[in-house]
């Protein structure tokens, strides 16, 4: 598909036309709980208004933001390490964040406020170590970066499982963290992080044309004047920051970052000027729907959302792949 701004805007409006009803549906409909009618007429009731504004709205926005951040980060990562299996968690960032989140639980469960800070610190530490492991003669070496990330991930996971021995009461919280849950972050945190994530994605979007050239070959891209090494380094930092922010509010939600870029490449080819915005919207939508299922299936009991993303995403992708190959 050739790139035209008008085409982008057209597709963007189609996406928004799908996204807005999905958003409203996930926000307003909840089988087993208060009905839509009651919700829309009951603004005076403090319980109803906190259900809408303090429980559901942050959660749906968290789904959009986390799913979007993970999908964009998977998309860019698959490009910079040139590996279709790359996903945001392969570089060990998620393990770092989880360990950072669990550590305050071991030190004392009262330190709730440190959980998000701890997660972010853990993610950044792992990110820095993996970055320097991946450097070779001052450039990012794809193989080294991947292997370094996998090794760091394995090492930190080992720390996590060792720390389980000391957790006691915090074990359920830790496990929930490792399975992902969109209700863990409070509304104030979510509304602060949303603009930050959007900003990082805009920064990533600046490189979308350069990404297209890098995809044709790093040498080719350098010959036409693209600063390939610098873009790879900066992109790595952006991607890590996106993953760290996503993980530190919602825990580890797998699969969105892996499958959404692959699905969208089937529709938009390899033009990142389309892929980046639509990965964000697609990832966000998948996670919103998956989270809706997680909370609606057995209300008031909740299912782990990370299981549902894979449950929905994997068959869809396989069907798509088979349909296109025939």
């Amino acid at each position: 598909m050739t790139f035209r701004v008008n085409t982008l805007l057209l597709h963007l409006s189609v996406w928004l036309l799908i996204l807005i009803p999905v958003f409203l549906f996930c926000l307003l409909v909840q089988p087993g709980s208060v009905s839509v009618q009651m919700l829309l007429t009951g603004f005076d009731d403090p319980i109803l208004s906190s259900i809408l504004w303090e429980v559901r709205l942050p959660r749906v926005i968290n789904g959009l933001m986390t799913g979007g951040a993970l999908a964009v980060s998977g998309l860019v990562l698959q490009l910079i390490v040139r590996n279709p299996l790359a996903e945001p968690y392969i570089l060990g960032i998620s393990s770092g964040a989880s360990f950072g989140a669990i550590l305050p639980l071991i030190l004392g469960a009262s330190l709730f406020s440190f959980q998000i800070g701890g997660a972010f610190t853990g993610a950044v530490l792992v990110m820095v170590v993996v970055y320097f492991t991946g450097l070779r003669y001052g450039r990012i070496d794809n193989g080294r970066l991947l292997l370094g990330g996998v090794m760091m991930g394995a090492f930190v996971s080992a720390l996590i499982f060792m720390s389980f021995t000391f957790l006691g009461d915090g074990l359920r919280t830790a496990i929930t963290w490792l399975m992902g849950n969109l209700s863990l972050g409070s509304s104030s945190v979510i509304f602060t992080l949303f603009p930050i994530i959007l900003l990082i994605i805009l920064l990533v979007y600046r490189y979308s044309y350069a990404y297209n050239l890098i995809l044709t070959g790093e040498e080719v891209a350098s010959q036409v004047g693209i600063p390939v090494d610098r873009i790879k380094k900066v992109s790595y930092l952006y991607v890590s920051a996106l993953t760290a922010l996503a993980v530190c509010v919602s825990g580890i939600i797998g699969f969105v970052g892996l499958v959404i870029p692959h699905i969208l490449r089937r529709f938009y080819g390899f033009d990142h000027r389309y892929l980046i915005p639509f990965s964000f919207l697609g990832g966000g939508m998948l996670l919103m729907i998956a989270d809706w299922i997680a909370r609606a299936a057995l209300f008031p009991v909740e299912l782990p959302v990370g299981a549902i993303t894979a449950f929905l995403g994997a068959p869809f992708f396989i069907a798509l792949m088979r349909k296109q190959s025939t």
Binding site: V34, I47, I51, V55, P300
Partner: peptide
């Protein structure tokens, strides 16, 4: 011993 939705607690009140 299930995980309960926050909204579930609000609705059960």
């Amino acid at each position: 011993y299930p995980v309960i939705n926050q909204e579930g607690l609000l609705k059960m009140n």
